[in-house]
Amino acid sequence: MANDITKNRKAILVTPENCIGCRACQVACKSWNQLPGIKTKNNGTYQNPPDLASAAFNIIKFSEVPSQENPVRWLFLSRRCMHCEDAGCMAICPAPGALYRTAEGAVAFDHDKCISCKLCVNACPFDVPRFDEEGKVSKCNLCADRIGAEMQPSCVKTCPTGALKFGDRNELISAAKKEGFATIYGENDLGGLGTIYAFKDKPKLYGMIENPTIPSSVIFWHSYLKPLSLFGLGGVVAAAALHYLAIGPHKEEEEKKEEV
């Protein structure tokens, strides 16, 4: 499933501690990707829209957790596609080119090549892909067009606090480690994520999944059923050829001649 780890693999480093929940990143993403607004209802939280959507490639998750010093602690977590190295979405997708890897290691999508089967979201450990009115895949592509032109992703560029950083993946990780963050979420998960998080607290506190994995049925299918479907056919054709040469077809000629 792994592709070659590109030497210049780029990543977004999220440092939730520095996030002030301003959601400028949400606006910047919409603006660059020309995504329409979504009508939502107030459901008692600042989190809006409530989840990723075909017109919302990133959101800030707001969560309230118990705290010792204060009545409550308010946590902000920037969520988007993780640009997994072992990307379940790419593995399961039956349409070539609908999801593809860019030179920077991002998982981008091609609206026209998507066949709207919605398999990808079911193989994604992070429930990321969403679908537009035509049923076509729609998600963060790490601003493939911008980073391809040596620009920063729109959300990163606009972030006023440095909670979002973009750059060489290895450099981001070592810098965060130097700053003393206990956990770099995504350093090794799924072959290494392209959206990584620097945490002092337990990632779980922020609602991150522990040990994200591609569904086992998808892994089984990819590593056993796909090869079996090829070797099965090849084996039968080879066996038939062998049978034909070594043993040969049923011969009815002799009997037939007697009866004619």
Binding site: L119, A123, P215, L225, V236
Partner: peptide, 16 residues
């Protein structure tokens, strides 16, 4: 996910 798995198991039966 189950359909995807089962569809492909059955496919392996067919190709043989």
């Amino acid at each position: 996910l189950i359909s995807h798995l089962v569809h492909n198991i059955a496919f392996c039966v067919f190709v043989i």
